[in-house]
Amino acid sequence: MSDDSLSTSPSEEAEAAAASRMIRADLVMAVVLIILGAAILYGSWTMPRLELRRVHPLTVPGLVPGMLSFALIICGAILGGRSVRRPAPGGWHLLGAALLSQQAMRAGTVMVLALIYSLILVGTLPFWLATGLFVFSFVVVFEAWLGVPRKPLVPTLAWAFGLAVVTAAAVTLVFERAFLVRLP
């Protein structure tokens, strides 16, 4: 977050910065799209054409993916070309700052917690325990550590524990008993 005092209005300045950042982000995205498009085009071109089954060349399985990947490459090229042409003062710097901002850290924390829960805990622990642990740590992390303003630890721990127990019990009971859905 920048705290420079500015002569122009702060909202205009922020809008210009967001535009610069987006122009550079578009360039990165354009490169990704072109590479992805080229890979799919290659995959479609080399896909079996089922000649032995006398399939008409215009109905081969690779036809539509090939056409779509070609369209993706064209869109990527337009996006990239547009991004190169437009001026974006400090765009790369702003894009880097956005990736390291507090907001990005909060989103990253959610991803880490979610991945630990769904990829590691679910499957190794019983579902109710994994769920309880996830809810407890999520609430504690976002209220007592990343909260703006931070909340006092003891009540947060109590709330987090209560919510974890209630969620684990409710989800297990409601899904398994009431709606007869099997849980992971």
Partner: peptide, 17 residues
Amino acid sequence: ERLMAVVYVLCVVGSFA
């Protein structure tokens, strides 16, 4: 903070079930 933790659990159950 409290709501989203529960919602994510529902997302996992919802996509699994």
